[in-house]
Design a protein around this nucleic acid. Structure first.
Lengths: 333, 333
DNA sequence: CTGTTAGCGCATTCAA
DNA sequence: TTGAATGCGCTAACAG
């Protein structure tokens, strides 16, 4: 690493002007095949690498986008990252990665750095920022796509998951399997996705002509313990329960544990359906029937949407909705 | 997003020269507290973000490093990435992420892009490049740290995992448990770490006075499917198999599945040992005995080494060796 | 078809 | 303590 080879070095070595080299490299403007060939060869021979810094300064594009996730070590986000990187790479873009660590201050810090690096746009996952901060960010940024979070002013790209449709599908699956006393382990009270899922659950019951019974819906913490406790309560209050639809897979695994403790066989006595299709879902015994989206495709779609918005200077809201697919395993065949 | 606020805008608004703004922002050079304060306030008010492009062009540093991994969706690498990003962020650096997808052409492409983006250095995981290509890369790069791959000219930073020692420990654990027909699901043919692990496996057998039998070593893709298929083949060819040492945990989980499908109990009939201690290892049933290093720490150590090399312009070889620890769980008690 | 001129936004070197 | 020039490597607009 002595001196970086510049366009001037190539020009000198090839006996042409700077501009001619630039034209050859970018393959634009009028230039004879002969000269282009010669320049390209020289450039190759010298190991020339165009500086995207200098180029970006002029063109105001860096061919780089930012990806901000809470934690790249979380399989959910690393799948998204893979899809994002694939889509970016395919379009000639690079990915600047940042972890927000569920910490708004660090998230803001990461976003600030991304701005300074002059990224052409950002894919932002599960942002914890205030609406106002987000709006300000969008003002300063050429393009933004949000995953798992509504846009503050309806003027960003948004990738959303249709939780309601998913929950309806999951519940209907249980009903079609002949279950009639279907409970719902509903997750945290305030959660947006919990409300969506509750709606889908209720909708499926209504469509099947089954009366909605509020005492069969139990809020719970979105973890093992929450699911276990809620399931115990449900079985105590409604011993006839023959199925549960769960807020997420962790809750569902908790429900599995509660069933085992209560001597109920899954799926013979009680069928269980989870949500999200986390890695664990396929590995527990019995394996969990669940609803999941293709995370990699979500990342790729977010990136493609971002690139399209960059290209078209789109500022209006665009929303892409993913409908979770039912993945049938042993817990609810 | 109208016009990016530049240093000139701040200067005009604050009624000072460009230079004074630059000094205030970078907090260097002589400048009165009063002016600095005023400039900083103005800069804040206008939402000024220094352009690292312009700054990098003159300072020849971008405060950005590249991280190239085979597949960020692989938990092994996503843990490394997390550690790398943490260490980079702590030092004020950003991370440009690239997936090489086990494909030398794509790896070369990613590295080329990183060069063009003028990264200050690169952490390169499990490179599949030819020695000559790697050497050429190092020549053009300010700094390079390799994970899981020896340096061609002994002039890069290297983070190594003692795969051979690990594999020997793992295989010996199986032999001490009384197993005698120990197979090896060997991973991808070309892989360096696969070769190291093969050596450790063979070594442990030799030390136990057991003849090495090449037909018990089966190459496979480093994923579930690869492990499952290889294990099926192994059980068919050697029904007496009472243990397998696996290239990695994903392969080991595949082996678990194949055992279940073949009606072999784990660990009673067949003991299974994996490698890498990914998250999944503790969650499967039976939980996987495996060999692991702290991946996050590996990523962080690689990054810290890289940053140190950047800072000190070090070019000699520096090697940090991690020895995997045996983590005993149910699959091979 | 090719070369010349002028910046992109900033830090560095000199003067004031 | 501050300001004015110069150039980082490159492309966009003109000339020739």
């Amino acid at each position: 690493m002595t001196h970086r080879v510049t366009i001037a070095d190539v020009a000198r070595a090839a006996g042409v002007s700077l501009q001619t080299v630039s034209r050859a490299i970018n393959n634009k403007g009028e230039i004879s095949d002969d000269t282009r060939q010669r320049v390209l060869e020289t450039s190759q021979r010298l190991g020339y690498r165009p500086s995207m810094l200098a180029r970006g300064l002029v063109t105001r594009t860096t061919l780089t986008i930012g990806l901000v996730v809470p934690d790249i070590a979380n399989p959910f986000f690393s799948e998204i990252a893979r899809g994002a990187e694939d889509a970016a790479h395919a379009a000639g873009y690079s990915l600047l990665l940042g972890n927000s660590t569920e910490n708004p201050a660090r998230e803001a810090d990461v976003l600030r750095t991304l701005e300074e690096k002059c990224v052409d746009g950002i894919v932002l996952c599960s942002s914890r920022l205030q609406q106002a901060e987000l709006a300000a960010l969008m003002d300063r940024l050429p393009a933004l796509v949000l995953i798992n979070r509504p846009a503050p002013n309806n003027n960003a790209g948004v990738i959303a998951v249709d939780d309601e449709a998913g929950a309806e599908d999951g519940t209907r699956h249980l009903l079609r399997g002949g279950r009639r006393a279907v409970g719902f382990l509903a997750g945290p009270r305030g959660s947006h996705s919990a409300q969506e899922r509750a709606r889908g659950y209720a909708c499926a019951l209504a469509n099947a002509g089954i009366a909605y019974d509020a005492t069969r819906s139990l809020p719970c913490q979105p973890y093992f313990e929450g699911g276990r406790e809620a399931m115990q309560t449900l079985l105590a209050a409604h011993p006839e329960t023959d199925a549960v639809f769960c807020y997420n897979d962790l809750v569902a695994v908790g429900a599995l544990q509660a069933c085992a403790a209560a001597g109920r066989r899954v799926p013979e006595d009680v069928a269980v359906v989870g949500c999200d299709d986390i890695l664990l879902a396929a590995l527990v015994t019995p394996a969990l029937t669940t609803l999941g989206v293709d995370k990699r495709e979500v990342g790729a779609a977010a990136t493609r949407l971002l690139l399209e918005r960059i290209k078209c200077c789109t500022t209006e809201c665009q929303e892409v909705m993913f409908r979770p697919a039912l993945i049938v395993r042993a817990s609810a065949p």
